[in-house]
């Protein structure tokens, strides 16, 4: 009996060793990890444009054996924290071969089952960039569910550099009011980009305070998938004018495992430059209230300072001139109560 047991255990170890040696999976990190963007860690089907950040080297007997993978992604924000489960996934059955991380879900290898803690994903998205330590565990099974091999790697992103950023205009750059080109780096998996721009009211105001103001100039304008737009042509909720400092931020909208996340760029501040006299502040207020009816050409002339108050006559219904004080009172009232405007028209000369 004792001999039989020893024989049985020996056969078992030999068999296990032979399976292991003939079927293996190895997880190898590749590429420049500092350039990995947040979209690359998203586990989802049909996400294009992700960066490759690991490779799975699979050796099976026979070659190209039908297998499936079960994976687990854990994350901790720093060395002193403990891991939290970020996502678990299972692939469909496919022919074993060497694959890159971006092929998971984007080739014949589909992710059949994905689950995980969306709150942690949200936290990572708010960091803008992969940060902390990711633990990736991969198990390979035969199509019959026989365990073949596994591997585990930890990938550390401790000093990430900002990769989703506004590339134009530059910080504190002076730009022509009629041609404010804004561009930004693309984000893998982004389905669209939105832009928000607000006036930086004074030097003591922080960029975030400016962005949280209640009346942005550009309010989450949807650019689509492009990564460049002329802000001068974007619809504005009120006009801007030469001399103003503007804070701009771009949001990448990313569909992550069925839920929408927003990835925010670092804000950039720039100054509007006008070649004319500074615009008349009363006319700009006026233009803001009536921007929907004033022709674009006239709006530009008001906001770039080429049309000044002394070139304009303001009269009441009886043809009497209206003073600047009276105009301001009327503007105050109409600004606070736009519903009091019952009729307006512009007759071009």
């Amino acid at each position: 009996m004792k001999r039989f047991s020893i024989f049985f255990v020996s056969i078992y170890f030999l068999f296990s060793f032979s399976i292991k040696s003939q079927n293996s999976i190895q997880l190898v990190t590749i590429g420049n990890l500092s350039s990995i963007d947040i979209g690359s860690i998203i586990l989802s089907n049909s996400l294009e444009g992700q960066s490759r950040f690991f490779q799975l080297i699979m050796i099976t007997q026979p070659i190209g054996r039908k297998v499936y993978l079960i994976g687990r992604l854990d994350w901790k924000p720093d060395l002193n924290s403990s891991f939290n489960n970020l996502a678990n996934f299972k692939t469909n059955i496919f022919n074993a071969r060497n694959i890159f991380s971006d092929e998971l879900g984007n080739s014949d290898i589909k992710l059949d089952n994905i689950n995980g803690d969306k709150e942690y994903f949200k936290q990572i998205f708010e960091l803008n960039k992969p940060k902390g330590i990711f633990g990736i565990s991969i198990q390979m099974f035969s199509e019959n569910g026989e365990f073949l091999d596994d591997d585990y790697q930890e990938i550390t992103f401790l000093n990430p550099t900002q990769t989703f950023s506004i590339t134009q205009p530059n910080y504190n750059e002076e730009v022509d009011i009629g041609n404010v080109i804004c561009s930004w780096s693309s984000v893998a998996g982004a389905t669209s980009y939105k832009i928000k721009a607000c006036v930086l009211e004074n030097e003591s105001q922080s960029l975030e305070e400016a962005l949280n103001s209640t009346n942005p100039i550009i309010n989450n304008y949807d650019v689509g998938l492009g990564t460049l737009v002329n802000l001068s042509d974007v619809p504005k909720s009120r006009e801007w004018y030469g001399g103003q400092k503007i804070v701009v931020v771009v949001y990448a909208i990313v569909n992550e495992s069925g839920s929408i996340s927003e990835l925010k760029s670092e804000p950039v501040v720039f100054k509007l430059k006008s070649f004319n006299n500074p615009p008349d502040i009363n006319l700009v207020r006026f233009a803001n209230i009536f921007s929907s009816i004033i022709p674009d050409e006239l709006l530009k002339k008001i906001t770039n300072g080429s049309l000044q108050l002394d070139q304009i006559d303001i009269k009441d219904e009886n043809g009497n001139k209206i003073s600047l004080d009276e105009l301001n009172k009327i503007l105050n009232m109409l600004e606070a109560n736009p519903n009091l405007i019952i009729n307006y028209s512009f007759k071009q000369k």
Partner: peptide, 12 residues
């Protein structure tokens, strides 16, 4: 309110 500009008249 009639705003008479060199480019046209805005009537409100």
């Amino acid at each position: 309110l009639n705003i008479i500009t060199p480019y046209g008249i805005l009537e409100i």
